[in-house]
Amino acid sequence: MSIRVRYFGSLREKMGRVDDSLAAEDIDTVSDVWKAVSEGQYLPDRILCAVNMDYADPDAPVKDGDEVAFFPPVTGG
C-alpha cells in the first residue's frame, strides 16, 4: 500500500508530473504529503487539497491507501 498523490490544472504543469506514490511512513496529514512531494516546502495558501475526492484541510489526517490531490482554485462553469 502507499499514498497516491495527484495534481491538476496549472499545478500539474508546475510539478512536471501527474502523480506521485508515497510510502506512508512519517506521513500523518495532508501538509506532510505536500512537504514530501515538494522538497519540504509549506503548502501555498491558494492551493486546495482533497483526500479521497473530498475537500480536506491541510491538517486533515492521511493514512495508507488514501488518494490525496492538490490543485489551484477551480474555474468551471
Binding site: G9, S10, A50, P73, V74, T75, G76
Partner: peptide, 27 residues
C-alpha cells in the same frame, strides 16, 4: 447549484490565445 459549481466543482480552464496559452486563475 450554479454558484456552488463555480466555486467548488473541480474543473480548470486553460485558454489558447492568439499567442500562447494561459490557465484561468479564478472565477
Amino acid at each position: 447549484i450554479m454558484e456552488e459549481l463555480k466555486s467548488r466543482a473541480p474543473f480548470w480552464k486553460k485558454e489558447t490565445l492568439k499567442e500562447g496559452e494561459r490557465w484561468v486563475e479564478k472565477n
